[in-house]
Write a protein that binds this DNA or RNA. Structure first.
Length: 516
RNA sequence: GGCCCGUUCGUCUAUCGGUUAGGACAUCGGGUUUUCAUCCCGGAAAGAGGGGUUCGAUUCCCCUACGGGCUACCA
């Protein structure tokens, strides 16, 4: 069997959208699974929408996810260059070939003339007039103008485009891997522009020419391309490449979590979650939140995205990239669009955090700790990590929920103090503090045994002691195992905190009206 | 409007003619725990509608409805 070659072909018009990441992922997965080649091609043919930094962003995102292409602008390869703006000559040559074969023609109409044409035909009762077999005869192109006129216009440098000559009245059919056979009537197709007035190719031309020259075997792309695929098929035919035409697979779109339409870049801000891999500052100053900065693991985003519109059929949901490669089959891609579900993304992230080793998590969390507290004590942080793994959904939660391990600068949750601080409390807490003072070693099992004994000997309940102890030591009722926490905080700080609590709690109890 | 694609719990999905329609997220209830989280147990929750085909349709076909995409010298 022929070696598989797939490409991810984004336009550098802004940050890579999460839908684009999923397209890249499915391409990558197929390539890896079949031992094929994953290629990155930059489709920068629209000079008006070009955004500086977008290409770098795309590459960084791919690399963050671990989807590094084997061929691409940076990697090179036998079929380069991999940036369409650097391939202009090829497109021009290929278009010349089409022109000579009579499969394409030059059109000199201005946008205004085309708009006028559409209006005129609409007035005549044509539902959706387009530049096609019924209208092109009344336009200014190399089909209607005399050869000498055309020659003159071209020689004088008159701006014009090259259009594909679509013959009406026949059917174009192709097999889509996901949807089965799809048919279109060529009578519904317009004469697509192939070469723009500025000499740049359109997507349709560049895409087909490049896929052919780069020996692409499978085109896996978003569903928004399904409608233009018949044009692409026609182009392969016009070039005489029908036998080498790649297999098409059109992916369902990712939809907004609520409401209508596909997920757009504005939805992130609107719904309060990231829709981009990483942060991005737009030229107009708009800030777009990234999954990375929101505290997501790349493996979790990949896992989440893989399952939006695909699933391996079994009960397992948590997969590493390697495992996904193992089980991925394009046949299991779903046909219908999938709604973006942020809660599920958080769940995947939590699951992946739980699966991490301490070392892995340390690497992901150290910069956050460093910038929050200015110092970084690696062994100390690594002691804390296991305690937090199953109680944070994002990496960003690590710092705020471990504050009491790193600083004395935090407030008491007053509500519980008011509820639990009774007449006997000071005496008990003080006694407990004294026993702790003499405890050796100051380690979780010993602390736990001691506290249990203390409660039993004084005929107390856990509820009378533990909440006060926890609040006094950590300030909050939420948190990891208290005994282990005390071990990490250490005897000295624990004692100091209890002394501080002994002083502060009565006042908090008295000032009952203060909000928690 | 036209063309194309789609339609199973709120959401992501399994089912490839015969199932009590399964799982996951979210949600609700209970248990474990010093708290939170994790974990465990349990509940509620779905085949858009109408016609066919068939002994039998969620599954195959048609129609309608609804949703989505495209309809640019954007990709």
């Amino acid at each position: 069997m022929k070696k598989i070659r797939v490409r991810f072909a984004p336009s550098p018009t802004g940050p890579l959208h999460i839908g684009g990441v999923r397209t890249a992922l499915y391409n990558y997965l197929l390539a890896r699974k079949e031992g094929g080649t994953f290629i990155l091609r930059i489709e920068d043919t629209d000079r008006t929408r070009f955004v500086t930094g977008a290409e770098a962003y795309i590459k960084e995102a791919l690399s963050w996810f671990g989807m590094v292409p084997e061929e691409g602008p940076d990697q090179g390869g036998a079929y380069g260059p991999y940036r369409q703006s650097e391939r202009k000559e090829r497109y021009r040559e290929q278009v010349q070939m089409l022109l000579e074969k009579g499969k394409a023609y030059r059109a000199f109409d201005t946008p205004e003339e085309i708009a006028a044409m559409k209006e005129a035909w609409q007035a005549k009762g044509v539902h959706s007039p387009k530049y096609d077999a019924v209208t092109r005869q009344s336009m200014r192109n190399s089909l209607t103008l005399s050869p000498s006129e055309v020659e003159e216009l071209v020689a004088s440098g008159a701006p014009h485009v090259v259009r594909l000559l679509v013959d009406p009245g026949r059917e174009v059919a192709f097999e889509d891997e996901i949807r089965g056979e799809v048919r279109f009537s060529t009578s519904e197709l317009d004469d697509k522009v192939l070469l723009k007035g500025d000499g740049m190719p359109t997507y349709h031309l560049a895409n087909v020419v490049d896929d052919y020259h780069m020996k692409i075997t499978h085109v896996i792309r978003g569903e928004e391309w399904l409608s233009s695929t018949p044009h692409h098929v026609l182009l392969y035919e016009a070039f005489g490449w029908r036998a080498e035409m790649p297999v098409f697979a059109h992916l369902p779109l990712i939809l907004k979590p609520s409401g209508k339409g596909k997920l757009s870049k504005r939805d992130g801000a609107k719904f309060g979650f990231p829709v981009f891999p990483m942060d991005w500052e737009a030229e107009d100053g708009t800030h777009y939140l990234g999954f990375r900065e929101a505290g997501f693991l790349p493996s979790a985003v990949i896992n989440f995205l893989a399952f939006l519109g695909w699933n391996p059929g079994g009960e397992q949901e948590i997969f590493t990239m390697e495992e996904l490669v193992e089980v991925f089959t394009p046949q299991n891609i779903v046909k219908s669009g999938a709604r973006f579900d942020y809660d599920k993304a958080l769940w995947f992230n939590q699951q992946h955090i739980m699966k991490c080793t301490v070392e892995e998590l340390y690497e992901m969390v150290k910069d956050r700790v460093q910038s929050a507290y200015g110092v970084l004590d690696a062994p100390y942080v690594k002691e804390i990590i296991p305690l937090m793994q199953e109680r944070i959904k994002t990496l960003n939660e690590f710092v705020p929920s471990t504050r009491f391990f790193f600083t004395e600068d935090w407030a008491y949750e007053a509500k519980m103090i008011r509820k639990k601080w009774k007449e006997d409390s000071p005496r008990h807490l003080k006694a407990l503090k004294d026993v702790l003072q003499g405890l050796d070693p100051f380690e979780a099992p010993a602390i736990e045994a001691m506290v249990r004994d203390f409660i039993q000997e004084n005929a107390l309940s856990f509820g009378a002691i533990m909440p006060l102890l926890r609040i006094g030591l950590t300030g909050t009722m939420k948190g990891p195992d208290l005994y282990k926490s005390m071990e990490i905080i250490g005897r000295e700080r624990s004692i100091q905190r209890l002394e501080r609590a002994l002083e502060a709690f009565p006042a908090i109890k008295a000032g009952g009206q203060h909000p928690g």
